[in-house]
Design a binder for these strands. Structure first.
Length: 487
DNA sequence: GCGCCAATAT
DNA sequence: AATATTGGCG
């Protein structure tokens, strides 16, 4: 763990010692909004050494001392004694606020609400102000020296680092959109955005990065240009608009999620954000006794495959989708086996839908419904997916040893997505992978050999409700694409 | 002076 | 990591 080197004196410098990310986020957002700096740190002991190192710039310690941490009082007292810093303690543990913990200025009981942070912040501001007034009136001479180097007004107002909030970025995008026929240049964008204090340089810098992202994103997909109107990945997000940091890379996702019991496919979410105006596919859930793999090929497409009982690519376990090489279509399908042993490699059929989702072929369980509506939302169609998914020509066992690729009906053209089967993109020649040891037939390899290569990654580990180890979900941050770590 | 880009700084 | 700054060039 490396503490940010950029730590420096601002109006107030706070060290946030926290292992609770929700908490961290709330606080961070608040502080960002107030233009204060906050640094989070996870390990108490590490934090202590940081405090020692940075004590001259730190003014408040905001800490979430975990109740299981044996030395919690020690730390608090230590901070108090050694550094004479304000301590704000957050804890879910009521008893902490009663006994022990000398030197704690404010207690916050978790979980934390925005309102509480507001109050806290007002409090901290007030304290700081009075402290400042005192110190500036008592140590005038020292201060003056500094002031004088600032020349005259003493109000050079160091250029405020602008924060590209989602709103601002949206304005930025809107401006570009308005300029669609004109030349898109920083000056005009800045004018159209009409944000006070925003300079041409600011916009130029942002534009530079925007274009860079565009280029990278384009490169992700094959040849043809894909219209990324939102390479910054902001539009479809319902996230807190106050959030100041956005993810410049379209396909990154949040951190690893190892929810036990039921996994939700967060990686899909981020994937789908590459499609403007498309609703997020937020929930596809799998039973925990299945394992997942996310594979990437050199074209940066991804898909999700499901292992059956920890055996890779066994009988009838595949579900997933991938971006077609036109960059505008999504292909998805399911591997199905017929009674006579023939394999249907690429269709989605209503009646034996998603056995790997934990449903019996005949069952229309809630999970299936979830899945269906997820796919529906993925495709931007209404929830009546079954009618869409009904194959035009239902595959029958008579298709012996033949790949059945059922073409689906078209979704509304507005979405611009095409149903298609798993056919390889033109000009694509898959490499024959070595047959996996012990597996006579490996249908998934046959179909998806292009995906299953060096980019393959094992997903996070999780436990199911019986304590059985199950492989969970991963994010793109675990993936290597083109041998490049994208994170 | 502007816009673009890459490199570099904060 | 995100943004700013700078310098070179058209």
């Amino acid at each position: 763990m490396i503490f940010p080197q950029s730590i420096r004196a601002k109006d107030i410098c706070i060290l946030l010692v926290n292992d609770d990310h929700v908490c961290c986020n709330i606080v961070s957002n608040m502080l960002d909004h107030c233009r204060y700096e906050v640094f989070s740190y996870e390990k108490e002991m590490d934090a202590l050494s940081i405090i020692r190192e940075k004590k001259d710039t730190l003014e408040i310690i905001l800490t979430n001392v975990h109740r299981t941490y044996a030395k919690k009082y020690e730390i608090i007292e230590h901070i108090e004694k050694e550094f004479k810093l304000q301590i704000i303690l957050m804890s879910p543990d009521v008893s902490l606020s009663e006994g022990g913990g000398n030197g704690v200025t404010v207690y916050i009981l978790k979980s934390l609400s925005v309102k509480e942070v507001n109050n806290l912040w007002a409090n901290a501001m007030a304290q700081e102000k009075s402290k400042r007034e005192i110190s500036s009136s008592s140590g005038k001479s020292g201060d003056k020296r500094k002031r004088e180097t600032d020349e005259e007004n003493g109000n050079v107002e160091k250029k405020r680092r602008i924060v590209w909030t989602k709103e601002m970025h949206q304005k930025f995008l809107d401006a570009i959109d308005q300029l669609r026929n004109d030349k898109v240049v920083p000056k005009k964008i800045a004018e159209l955005m009409n944000v006070p204090g925003l300079t041409r340089e600011n916009v130029a810098s942002h534009l530079q990065k925007y274009r860079l992202c565009m280029k990278r994103a384009q490169g992700m997909f094959t040849s043809s240009s894909y219209d990324f109107t939102d390479p910054f990945n902001l539009n479809p997000s319902q996230a807190n608009s106050q959030e100041s940091h956005w993810n410049p890379f379209p396909f990154q996702i949040r951190s690893r999620n190892t929810t036990p019991s039921l996994f939700s496919l967060s990686c899909y979410e981020s994937r789908l954000r590459t499609f403007p105006n498309m609703p997020l596919l937020s929930k596809i859930q799998f039973k925990p006794d299945r394992s997942f793999r996310v594979c990437g090929n050199e074209k940066q497409n991804i898909l999700l495959s499901i292992e059956d009982n920890n055996r890779i690519c066994s009988d009838s376990s595949f579900a997933g989708f991938r971006l077609a090489n036109d960059g505008k279509s999504i292909q998805f399908g399911q591997n199905g086996h017929f009674d006579d042993g023939s394999v249907n490699k690429s269709y989605i059929q209503q009646d034996d839908f998603c056995p790997e989702m934990g449903n019996d072929d005949s069952t229309l369980g809630p999970e299936r419904d979830d899945w269906m509506s997820s796919v529906a939302s993925l495709l931007g169609v209404d929830d009546n997916l079954p009618s869409i998914l009904t194959p035009q020509q239902p595959p029958t066992p008579s298709h012996q040893n033949k790949v059945v690729a059922t073409t689906m009906t078209q979704p509304p053209p507005s979405v611009g997505l095409q149903w298609s089967d798993w056919a390889d993109p033109p000009g694509y020649s898959p490499q024959q992978p070595p047959p996996p040891p012990g597996n006579e037939v490996n249908d998934n390899f046959e179909i998806f050999s292009d995906f299953i290569s060096t980019g393959l990654c094992e997903l996070g580990k999780g436990m199911d409700e019986n304590g059985v180890d199950a492989t969970g979900i991963c994010g793109f941050d675990d993936l290597l694409f083109n041998n490049q770590d994208l994170t």
